[in-house]
């Protein structure tokens, strides 16, 4: 939880920097920081056993968006994507397609492969928090770190895709 408070504080400070530059930007940034604070403060899980409800297809799409872009999905985008999803029979296949599209977006908040490999421990921790809203167990941390470290072909996209396609990601 300490890490999240630090993270929230950092976002809040970024918000303060914005405050001194542009009024409009200030308002947006403050809302953003509050949202982040609220989400991390409320939604963090101490274990995955707390996740009992399955996400609806729309909720899943909107959460994927916010996990990649660090912001709420615009309602128009959600409507468009939900309609495309409805137009396809295989929902997990569509999720994979839209996820691969998100990852190529210049606005996506995704580390590079070099950044991942520069600090695999931090990357694993961040990925668990980003997608599962919980910290990895010691075993999970070591296993995934070793997997990434021992296989130079594993990319950030591979890791993120695995999280998004895993069963735990479908639950909250």
């Amino acid at each position: 939880m300490q890490d999240f408070k630090k993270q929230a504080l950092l976002v809040f400070l970024i918000g303060l920097i914005g405050f001194s530059s542009c009024k409009k930007q200030v308002e947006e940034t403050i809302v953003y920081s509050n949202t982040i604070y609220e989400v991390t403060d409320v939604s963090i899980y101490s274990s995955n056993a707390e996740k009992t409800k399955q996400k609806s297809p729309e909720l899943l799409l909107s959460i994927i968006y916010s996990d990649i872009f660090n912001q709420a999905i615009p309602s128009r985008t959600l409507l468009e994507i939900a309609e495309l999803s409805t137009s396809n029979g295989d929902k997990t296949m569509f999720t994979e397609m839209i996820f691969s599209q998100f990852l190529t977006d210049p606005m996506a908040s995704v580390p590079t492969n070099a950044q991942m490999r520069a600090d695999v421990d931090a990357f694993v921790l961040d990925s668990y928090i980003r997608f599962y809203q919980r910290k990895p167990s010691e075993y999970e941390q070591i296993y995934l770190k070793n997997l990434i470290t021992n296989n130079n072909l594993i990319t950030v996209e591979n890791v993120y895709s695995s999280f998004v396609l895993s069963n735990e990601y479908y639950f909250y």
Binding site: N48, L147, L153, N158, S162, E168
Partner: peptide, 13 residues
């Protein structure tokens, strides 16, 4: 690669 990691995640849920 994805299936390897997904299998690991699923085994823990």
């Amino acid at each position: 690669r994805i299936e390897t990691m997904k299998t690991f995640f699923d085994a823990n849920f």
